[in-house]
Design a protein around this nucleic acid. Structure first.
Length: 295
DNA sequence: ACGTCTTCCTGGGCGC
DNA sequence: TGCGCCCAGGAAGACG
């Protein structure tokens, strides 16, 4: 389940492996995972009401998915990724819950059951350099093609600052009575915090998840910003070491999960005070907190 | 205008 | 063992 730390890991791995390579061709296996701005038939129609059938899909141009370009950079803001070419084209990627961008070695076979929705063939120094695939079993993720780097920047400017740069001011300026956890999960407040790290940061900052967002003291805002940065930074570091040790899906859970102090620990004793952790629903999300030491 | 609820999807875990 | 239920998650749009 990629949150910011996992997305950052994907970004840094891709940076190592595809910058400098050319996108030789692209195959879209599932059209509805790709959005072309301006094309109303673009993906995510499935998010709309079932009684509103989308128009006939238009033809997707390979150039809108970087074909013919050379990868210049892989960028991240919050949980979103962008692959950028030398000629300033860009594809924006959201991994959703189960999305992955994988390098596939030459000759490897992938079937429909692998849930691969987009495949790029890569060339490096004029020779085949294998493939890059977008895989997403649950299809909460997707790609936005046909963008420029400026388009990506414009989209990202609609979001809050990257959560690694969280500062107290973000929380001090919150108005309204929704729960602080709802505000944390809102990507317009801060980009990159998901359910797991929202609970972890609130626990460490000793703030109850259902506290009204406008009720935090300056001290609490300060602690919350500090701990948002800390939980994410530690998870990035843990993810890095996990990857070296194990690789693959089981490894990615190991080290990071051991560090969770509340997430997934409902009913177990608080690591700080021993009180049993409680589970509840806040902002329609499963939430775990300590009733004794989170105020 | 603002906050909350529903919807999209599938694998896995649980209970019967 | 097997079947079916329900849950997890992010974000947009509908609804209150």
């Amino acid at each position: 389940m990629p949150e910011l730390p996992e997305v950052e890991r994907v970004r840094s791995e891709l940076e190592q492996s595809i910058v400098g390579a050319a996108f030789a061709s692209v195959t879209v296996h599932r059209r509805d995972t790709v959005v072309i701005p301006g094309d109303p038939s673009g993906g995510f129609a499935r998010n709309k009401r079932a009684d509103r059938p989308g128009p006939t899909p238009k033809r997707l141009k390979p150039a809108q998915l970087l074909t013919g370009g050379r990868c210049r950079a892989v960028l991240r803001h919050g949980k979103q990724l962008a692959m950028v070419t030398d000629d300033d084209r860009a594809v924006l990627i959201h991994l959703g819950m189960t999305g992955a961008l994988l390098r596939v070695i030459p000759g490897a076979r992938l079937s429909q059951s692998d849930h691969v929705h987009v495949t790029w063939r890569l060339d490096a120094a004029g020779e085949s350099a294998g493939r890059l695939v977008f895989r997403d079993p649950r299809r909460f993720g997707g790609l936005w093609g046909g963008l420029s780097v400026a388009d990506v920047r414009a989209r990202w400017s609609q979001l809050g600052p990257d959560a690694l740069d969280a500062r107290r001011g973000v929380f001090e300026s919150l108005t309204g009575r929704r729960a602080i956890k709802a505000a944390l999960l809102d990507q317009r407040t801060l980009a990159g915090v998901g359910n797991i790290y929202a609970d972890e940061a609130l626990f460490r900052a000793r703030v109850r998840p259902n506290r009204s967002a406008d009720s935090l003291t300056p001290g609490e805002c300060d602690r919350l910003a500090e701990h948002v940065r800390a939980v994410l930074t530690e998870a990035i570091e843990a993810g890095g070491s996990t990857l070296r040790d194990y690789r693959g899906s089981t490894g990615s859970e190991g080290a990071a999960q051991r560090d969770h102090r509340v997430y997934g620990r409902a009913g177990q004793p608080c690591v700080r005070c021993g009180q049993f952790l409680e589970v509840s629903q806040v902002a329609q999300r499963t939430t775990v907190h300590c009733p004794a030491c989170q105020m």
